[in-house]
């Protein structure tokens, strides 16, 4: 119980995060050719229902994407986070990348991913995805055995069972349980999200063993903040790609975040239906 407070504090305070980190994660290699091809082929029969041309009269889906009842709060924290990224994170990370070479940064990034594997396994179990939990577990064992957790030797292996690491978060567990998404919600330092994704971030933090291994909560916070800071390069790039060309950066980020969130969920659902 004593540890719950630091964990929750961590969830609330952590520099950079769920929403943002997920956004950066999505610039991952897309599905291999064969998969993409088959996805396109399966998209064909449903084509009659798709309306590709809903630009003149925005569809209900688009209206849902721009729903923003907490706009006042969100705009305030958007401004705060933007200032933090431009004036603190960017210069700090620029200096950091000049000192720490990319291979080392990637190694630390892999380490961050690998030590969090119990959270992913647990989420898959909570979703009833036992096969995927097994895959996640064996991938982590492989990575730790071969590289002590600093490498990623198993991500290119094709599992025997359809496996989607993007689903291994508490946000998705809540979705599986039927918890509604809630409106768009920007938290300080955490970046864009929804109410559910923010709760999910707290849940994931509570499941990560590294948050229980060190006695002093401020060391835990420093350690986790460092691991996120090490990964900030991807985040900054994704953030710039969305906001740099924008006339209204706040709206551009909301649209990009909510569309990506919707696409990701549709992709997960489509994979499940197959």
């Amino acid at each position: 119980m004593k540890r719950l407070f630091p964990t929750l504090l961590l969830a609330a305070m952590l520099a950079l995060a769920s929403g943002c980190a997920k956004q950066a994660d999505q610039i991952e290699p897309a599905a291999p050719a064969a998969q993409a091809e088959s996805a396109a082929a399966t998209a064909q029969p449903a084509a009659a229902e798709i309306d590709l041309d809903d630009y003149d009269s925005p569809s209900a889906e688009d209206a849902a994407l721009s729903r923003d009842p907490l706009e006042g709060w969100n705009r305030f924290w958007f401004g705060f986070n933007d200032g933090f990224i431009q004036y603190v994170l960017k210069p700090a990370h620029k200096g950091y990348s000049a000192v720490v070479p990319e291979p080392l940064r990637n190694g630390i990034s892999n380490f961050k991913h690998n030590i969090s594997f119990p959270a992913r396994v647990l989420n898959f179990l909570l979703q009833g995805e036992f096969a995927q939990a097994g895959i996640e577990f064996s991938k982590a064992i492989g990575n730790f055995m071969v590289t002590l957790g600093f490498g990623d030797v198993t991500s290119r292996n094709t599992p025997l069972f359809p496996y989607d690491p993007e689903a291994a978060c508490f946000d998705h567990t809540l979705y599986v349980w039927g918890v509604p998404d809630g409106p768009y919600f920007i938290a300080p330092f955490l970046g864009p999200g929804t109410v559910r994704s923010t709760v999910g971030f707290g849940g994931d933090a509570a499941m990560k063993p590294q948050n229980y291994m060190i006695d002093e909560w401020y060391y835990t916070l420093a350690f986790d903040t460092y691991l996120h800071f090490n990964d900030a390069g991807k985040l900054i790039k994704a953030y710039d790609a969305v906001t740099e060309h924008a006339i209204e950066p706040y709206t551009a980020l909301r649209n990009a975040y909510m569309s990506q969130r919707k696409n990701r969920l549709e992709k997960l659902e489509a994979a499940k239906a197959q």
Binding site: T251, A252, N255, A256, S259, Q260, N263
Partner: peptide, 17 residues
């Protein structure tokens, strides 16, 4: 690009303005 429509992204911004 990555499922984000360039036109819809700008359209959302322009609607605000």
């Amino acid at each position: 690009i990555e499922g984000i429509s360039m036109i819809k992204n700008y359209r959302d911004q322009f609607r605000d303005i």
